[in-house]
Amino acid sequence: MELANIEKLIEKYENAETSLQEEQELKDYFQQKDIPNHLFEYKALFNYFDESSTERYTKTIPLKTRKTNWKWISAAAAVLLLFGVYSLKFSDSISKKERQEAEFALLETKKAFQLISQKLNKGEHVAFAGLQEFNKAQNKIFKTK
């Protein structure tokens, strides 16, 4: 391209009036080796832009992690559920046995309490009779009424 043309384009470029296509022309022009001295700094500029645009992101972006996570989570949940159901059933059979034992124990305890209360009542009768005898003797002695 003609030098005059390039200079015109550069002026437009500085005023940010060039189109993308014209900017590409400038970039192409400054790729060549022989650049007039007064345009040397533009070569640096456009070469820099070219160089920068080839930079790549080289690391891998881990995006699939979530999917595999779901697999593991669901597997863990299934195991947990199975274990839960199993242990619930197991604990249920235990409690049946325990309930029977507990009922038996309750009956035995009731019996024991009944026995104690019977004995207590008997004792009370004896004590009451004794008290009456005592009252009689007291009345005889003091003749209050």
Partner: peptide, 10 residues
């Protein structure tokens, strides 16, 4: 010089 210039642009 040019290389220098390029990094200077940066």
């Amino acid at each position: 010089e040019l290389k220098d210039c390029v990094s200077r642009v940066h």
